[in-house]
Nucleic acid binder design. Structure first.
Lengths: 112, 112
DNA sequence: TTCATATTTCGATGATACTAGAAATATGGA
DNA sequence: TCCATATTTCTAGTATCATCGAAATATGAA
């Protein structure tokens, strides 16, 4: 069983993972990439990050469960775990918005 | 005008503010307290934190705009800025969920 | 004024996090 | 087997963050 405290700890960890310029950029890029995901090299190119720095951030996001990793030949493909992100947004909505409609209308769907 | 980059930076700052055990606990307590807010001393008692440590965390949350401060006689009252929290959840929903219904049904309202 | 309460600011310390080059590992092709 | 590609792990240096006692500030009451 997962205790309430564990859930809060998990939320803290995941918030911390997103609370970084580069990791948030990586995550947003992977959201756009969808379930297919994107190879580490492609991400490094897109965001102009040194490979070792990117690897550090990818490991962080993976460790907290926000993204997944799979190998495809020589490449390692990273993809968003949408269920995990659902969980995080759900936690914030339930615990940090006090039933005050925290996912506003304007956020309803505005895909590019 | 507020640029897209600024909005992302603001999101990073606010995520970072919530990405700490004590600050998240403070924030959740203030959500429960509602618009009335709660005095620093009462928060310190409730969460069993040294005054100076709490003050540090309250300052952080205030700096990023997630809570507000007002004086009431000798007490400083802190309260959640629900609009700011709306904005953060909206940002996550719009940018980090890819239209994949990130505020799930189960989060619709389950007040204690 | 003087005192008590409420809270912050200061300061020093320890802990974590970020960065990025260099070396190591994994995979596939010639 | 040997080489190139893709990526990670190692390492060390720097920077940022958290903690909390002590001192300072603000407010109100006697």
């Amino acid at each position: 069983m997962v205790s309430k405290a564990d859930i809060a700890t998990e939320a803290v960890d995941r918030l911390g993972a997103l609370a970084n310029e580069h990791r948030l950029a990586v995550f947003r890029l992977l959201v756009q990439a969808g379930p297919e995901g994107q190879a580490a090299g492609a991400i490094a190119d897109a965001l102009d990050l040194p490979a070792s720095s990117l690897s550090f951030h990818l490991a962080h996001l993976t460790r907290v469960g926000l993204i997944t990793q799979r190998r495809e030949s020589r490449s390692l493909i990273y993809a968003v775990d949408f269920a995990a992100m659902n969980g995080l947004v759900g936690f914030l909505t339930e615990n940090c918005c006090g039933g005050r409609d925290c996912a506003p209308k304007s956020a309803k769907r505005s895909r590019a």
